[in-house]
Write a protein that binds this DNA or RNA. Structure first.
Lengths: 226, 226
DNA sequence: CAAAGACGGAAACAATTTGGCAACAACTGC
DNA sequence: GCAGTTGTTGCCAAATTGTTTCCGTCTTTG
C-alpha cells in the first residue's frame, strides 16, 4: 500500500519490537528493528527511513539523548517516542528535544497507526494531499482539480495559481506575492497584466458562467479568493 | 506570557470546560468556552482564535462534523479533538477530517499543554494580523475593515491611511509623516490638500453621520485619531 | 478686539491608475 | 510543424486619486 515507506524502531524489548514489526508490516511499511542504538547511525547513513520510533528508556544511552545527538548531526527524521504512561516529565522533554510525537505504553495498534500516519503526512511523506475550499477540491499529488465534483482540466500555471489561492482563502494576495509564489524567479519586466490574464483564464475554467465569483479583485493590491 | 493568544473550546460538559479554562488561563492564554457549536461560527468570524479544542461527542452536531464544515468554509484554525479513550474509531476520523491532534479523556494537564504548545508552534502562530481601536477593526490579511461590526468598503489608500492611524492612536501624526508613510515616495509637488481630502473621504466612509469624531485636526501639524 | 492671513472642510471636476478581456505573439514539447 | 500553453499588447470601462475652488474657522498680531 504505502509504497516502500521505511520505518525503523529502537526498543530493547524484543516482544514490543515484534509487535511493531507485525503491525507496521501489515500496514505495508518496510520495517527494521533495533534492540539498541548501536548500528542505528550507520543504518541512517545508508537508508534514510521516513520515520523512527524510539523507546525513551533504553539501556545505556537514553532514547531522547540519542535523538538529540542525531539532530545535532543534521538528521531531521521525524520521531515518535514510546514512553511509559506514568512518566509525564519524559513527555515534555520528548517534544523539547526535537521529537515530533509520542505514544504512551502500553499503546494500542490503532493509536500508533494514526500517529504514524499523521506524522508522515505532516512531514510530507506519501502524502495524499488534498485541499479544498468551497466546492473546489485539489489533489496535489495527482495534480487534479474538481469543481462541484466535476473534474476540471487545468494547465500547470492555472493549477499553481489556484493552489496558491485555495491555500490562503479569504486572504488578499498581493501581486508581488503571487509573482514570487506562482511565477517564482523571472524577475525583470514582469508585466502587470500577466496576472490579470492568468486569473481571467482561470476564472473562465472553474466558473464558466461567472456566477460563483471566486475571485475578488482588491484594487491596487491583488486578488482575494472568497 | 503568550501575549494575547486566544484559544476556544467546545465541550458540553461544563466541568471540563472550567478545567480547560483554569489551566489555559494559568498558562496565559485568552480562553473562551462554548457548550455547543452554536454561536461558534459567528465568533470565528469576528475573533479568529489561534486554536480550537473540540469534543468529539457533542449533542446534536458532532464535533468532527462541525470541524469539517468549518474547513469547507475556509477556516484553517488548528483543532485538538477531545475523545474518550475507548472510542478509537473516532480518533481515526478525527485526523482524517482535518483535525490536527487529539487528546483522550481523561487527560492530564501536562499532556494537554504539551499538545497545545506543539500545535501552536506547528501552525506558526502570530501571523494573523488584526488591529483595532475603539470600534474600528482592521484585518490586514483579508484587507477588510469593520466599524461597529459593520464591514466597510475601503479603497487601498483609505485602508493604508486608516491602518496608519489605528497603529498610532491618540498620537498627532504630522503631515510629513503621513506623506512618507502612506504616499511613500512621490516627493515632488505634493499638494497639501491631498491629505485633507483623503482624510475627509475616509471620515465620510467610517463615520457618515459625523458623530464619532475619530479624527481631530491638529492645527498646523496634522491629524490625531482619538 | 478686529482684521488679515493661514489652515481645514466639502464638493465638483479632472487626471490617473487599475482591472477585464480579447486578440495576437512567443514559446514549449512532441 | 502542430497543438497546447503562456506572455504581451491594446482598448475599454470603472474605480480611485489628485486638483481646484469656495467657504468657514482658527490663530495671530497690531
Amino acid at each position: 500500500m504505502e509504497d516502500g515507506i521505511e520505518i525503523i524502531a529502537i526498543e530493547d524489548d524484543q516482544d514490543i519490537l515484534n509487535l511493531l514489526e507485525y503491525h507496521l508490516q501489515k500496514e505495508g511499511y518496510a520495517f527494521t528493528g533495533f534492540l539498541s542504538t548501536k548500528n542505528v547511525e550507520q543504518f541512517l547513513e545508508e537508508e534514510s527511513p521516513a520515520l523512527m520510533i524510539v523507546d525513551r528508556n533504553l539501556p545505556g544511552l537514553e532514547g531522547s539523548e540519542f535523538v538529540s545527538q542525531m539532530r545535532q548531526k543534521g538528521y531531521t527524521i521525524p520521531v515518535i517516542f514510546l514512553t511509559a504512561r506514568d512518566k509525564e516529565k519524559d513527555l515534555v522533554e520528548g517534544f523539547e528535544c526535537g521529537g515530533d510525537d509520542y505514544v504512551t505504553k502500553p499503546f494500542s495498534n490503532k493509536e500508533l497507526m494514526v500517529r504514524v500516519k499523521a506524522l508522515l503526512a505532516r512531514s510530507g511523506v506519501g502524502m495524499v494531499q488534498k485541499i479544498r475550499f468551497r466546492d473546489i477540491k485539489l489533489d496535489l499529488a495527482k495534480r487534479e482539480a474538481w469543481v462541484d465534483k466535476e473534474p476540471i482540466d487545468l494547465t500547470n500555471l492555472e493549477f499553481k495559481l489556484l493552489q496558491t489561492f485555495v491555500s490562503k482563502p479569504n486572504v488578499a494576495l498581493e501581486r508581488d506575492f503571487l509573482r514570487d509564489e506562482v511565477w517564482k524567479d523571472e524577475s525583470i519586466d514582469f508585466h502587470d497584466k500577466t496576472i490579470n490574464v492568468a486569473i481571467s483564464r482561470l476564472k473562465k475554467k472553474i466558473d464558466p458562467d461567472g456566477t460563483k465569483n471566486y475571485f475578488l479583485p482588491v484594487w491596487g493590491v491583488g486578488y482575494k479568493m472568497i
